Computed example of a mutant assay.
Amino acid sequence: MTSTPRIILASGSAIRREILTGADIPFEVMKPDVNEDVIKEAGRDEGLDLESLAMRLAEAKCMDIASKTNAIVIGSDQIMEFEDRAYDKPADMTAAKARLMETQGAPHTLINAIAVARNGEIVWRNLDRPTLVMRALSETEIDAYLEAAGPDILHSVGAYQIEKLGSRLFERIEGDHFAVLGLSLYPLLDFLRREGAIAF
Rank of each mutant, 00 (worst) to 15 (best):
N70L: 09
N70P: 06
A71M: 08
A71R: 11
A71Q: 03
A71S: 15
I72G: 05
I72V: 13
I72E: 09
I72D: 07
V73F: 09
V73G: 09
V73T: 12
I74C: 10
I74S: 04
I74G: 07
G75M: 01
G75D: 03
G75P: 04
S76P: 08
S76D: 07
D77W: 13
D77V: 10
Q78W: 05
Q78R: 05
I79C: 05
I79T: 05
I79F: 03
M80K: 06
M80Q: 12
M80E: 14
M80I: 12
E81M: 12
E81G: 08
E81W: 02
F82A: 09
F82P: 07
F82G: 08
F82K: 09
E83Q: 15
E83L: 11
D84M: 11
D84K: 15
R85W: 11
R85A: 15
A86K: 10
A86T: 13
A86L: 04
A86N: 11
Y87L: 13
Y87I: 11
Y87D: 06
D88I: 00
D88P: 05
D88R: 09
D88K: 13
K89W: 10
K89F: 03
K89Y: 07
P90D: 11
P90H: 02
A91P: 08
D92R: 12
D92Y: 05
D92W: 09
D92L: 10
T94I: 12
A95W: 00
A96D: 02
A96I: 01
K97Q: 14
A98F: 06
A98G: 05
A98S: 14
R99G: 01
L100W: 01
M101Q: 15
T103W: 01
Q104W: 00
Q104L: 00
G105T: 07
G105R: 07
G105Y: 05
G105F: 09
G105Q: 09
A106I: 00
A106K: 15
P107Y: 11
P107A: 08
P107Q: 07
P107G: 08
P107S: 07
H108G: 01
H108M: 01
H108P: 07
H108A: 05
T109V: 14
T109E: 12
T109Q: 13
T109F: 04
L110C: 10
L110P: 08
I111P: 02
N112A: 08
N112F: 00
A113G: 07
A113C: 08
A113Y: 04
A113V: 05
I114L: 06
I114M: 00
I114E: 02
A115K: 06
A115Y: 02
A115H: 02
V116S: 01
V116H: 04
A117F: 03
A117T: 03
A117D: 02
A117L: 10
A117V: 10
A117M: 04
R118L: 02
R118T: 00
N119C: 11
N119A: 14
